[in-house]
Design a protein around this nucleic acid. Sequence first.
DNA 1: ATAACATATGTTAATAATAACATATTTATA
DNA 2: TATAAATATGTTATTATTAACATATGTTAT
Lengths: 110, 110
Amino acid sequence: MKQDSIHLIDEKHLKESQKIFKLLSNPTRLQMLHLLEQKRLNVKEIGGILNVEQSVVSHQLAHLKKFQLVSSEQIGKARYYQLNDPHILDVVNETIAHSDHVMRGKKHGE
Amino acid sequence: MKQDSIHLIDEKHLKESQKIFKLLSNPTRLQMLHLLEQKRLNVKEIGGILNVEQSVVSHQLAHLKKFQLVSSEQIGKARYYQLNDPHILDVVNETIAHSDHVMRGKKHGE
DNA sequence: ATAACATATGTTAATAATAACATATTTATA
DNA sequence: TATAAATATGTTATTATTAACATATGTTAT
């Protein structure tokens, strides 16, 4: 009997992981998560730091919120955002560290 | 002097991380990496296991190769692929584990 | 209640990712 | 060397992402 028993990622985990990676594959969102790792910030502050338009910031935050990576709280006129899921930062930080390794290890261009 | 010294991800790391996350945000590519983690496989085998067309497999493998996540070797008529970068699997596996956590923690739909 | 500030949401145009199909290369064997 | 098998590459239509702009909603102070 020849059984190699190769394992596949099941549909649910696959889709969920895909969503997470999609969320992290955008530079603005990555920076936002990185910022919020350090400090709770409101929309205007984030836009100022990243030099990104207000509506873009709000849209991307909504996106992150939809997938529960951030939560928010209204304080006065401003709405402050914070990380809702510190664990995801492990993935981010590990990947940044990895990217560092990849960058250093590059033979030529690309 | 008011200095909050908020740190930003620098351009290089940001772009590199973005590339990696983009690569991982596709279900076919994720499955491929997961397969290759277990066993070196050729194009036909991968297509068979994942039930994906030959040209799609080749295109996606080329994509992964371009970013040095896999390497390949010709053996007879077949070309076998293998992981070139086991470290990236840590990111993948951590994210899958995380997605598991997220899925369990979900209150209602979405 | 109205004005001003902050944020959210709707819509659209530009761009990128994907799968599908066709064709070209490469390798082994008759 | 001709053929078949395996893989790669080119091209295109479909769909998804993104940023930009316009408008709406919510919050505070006057």
